[in-house]
């Protein structure tokens, strides 16, 4: 009996649709032509221009400051949350907890952006790097918690009980057994948090203030007000950074289970 070829052909079309625009963008970043419909040879001229721009460097600096601090805080919060969800999953408190953690994953970004902006304005917090940090942690915690939770579900808690029986204190068994075994999940979550923070535009756009321009905000204003092909080069660099983090995190998250799971 012959299986229909139609789904396979459709999948090929879908893959081409997903990747062609990105490939064309990367190719164009090496194209010296101002209007990118004609190929005029390989060149790094846009990359050179990029490295000369002080605004870009300032944006890179802001982006990294935020991403690193967001990753540190959301990893701690997210891991504790995942542990609570897994260990005490059946309780009413954890059901509320889960709903809260799940919310940032479904609610449209613009709603999170606007509601945080209202809060900062109402309380009188000046907008800037700090408000961006608070906003980013809020959505990164959910992704970290979900990633670590996936890892915890494969974890055999009888190992901890064995250690306790053999005289280990609760802190010892957590530090020497639980954390090392969860490490791949935690690192995967950290990489995702870093990527999401580096990448976020919508929420950042709402809670940013003067002088706190991040890389995506910079790219946006370059797109909106005059579009030099420098954006192609900058986008390619951003793609390389996020892609590396994603591939690493996928590797780590699936190191033992072997299958690629959909996290987030």
């Amino acid at each position: 009996m012959r299986r229909s070829r139609f789904p396979i052909a459709m999948t090929a079309v879908v893959m081409a649709f997903l990747y062609l625009p990105i490939i064309i963008l990367i190719l164009n970043s090496f194209n010296p032509a101002r209007f990118s419909s004609r190929w005029e040879g390989f060149s790094l001229v846009w990359y050179a221009k990029l490295f000369e721009s002080p605004e870009i460097w300032q944006a890179v600096r802001n982006t990294l400051i935020i991403a690193v601090s967001v990753t540190a805080v959301s990893v701690v919060l997210g891991t504790a949350a995942a542990y609570a969800l897994h260990r005490f999953g059946a309780s009413r408190l954890q059901r509320v907890h889960y709903t809260l953690i799940y919310q940032p994953l479904v609610v449209p970004e613009i709603l999170m952006g606007i509601s945080l902006l209202m809060t900062f304005v109402a309380v009188g917090v000046p907008l800037g790097l700090f408000t961006i940090f608070l906003a980013h942690v809020t959505f990164c915690v959910s992704y970290v918690a979900m990633t670590v939770l996936g890892r915890l579900q494969d974890f055999d808690f009888s190992v901890i009980e064995a250690a306790r029986d053999l005289g280990a204190s609760s802190w010892q068994s957590t530090r020497k057994i639980l954390l090392p075994m969860l490490m791949p999940g935690i690192v995967a979550g950290a990489l995702l948090a870093f990527t999401l923070s580096v990448d976020d535009f919508v929420i950042t756009f709402f809670v940013a203030g003067p002088g706190s321009t991040t890389l995506p905000l910079r790219i946006y204003s370059m797109i909106k007000y005059g579009a030099p092909p420098m954006i192609n080069a900058l986008s390619t660099l951003l793609l390389v950074v996020t892609l590396t983090a994603v591939l690493l995190s996928q590797r780590l998250a699936n190191r033992r289970s072997g299958a690629v799971k959909s996290t987030g």
Binding site: I24, L25, N28, I219, I223, I231, S235, L239
Partner: peptide
């Protein structure tokens, strides 16, 4: 997971 803004920009060009 790759930059949302970049992918929208790719289509714009």
């Amino acid at each position: 997971w790759t930059s949302f803004l970049v992918r929208v920009f790719a289509w714009r060009s």
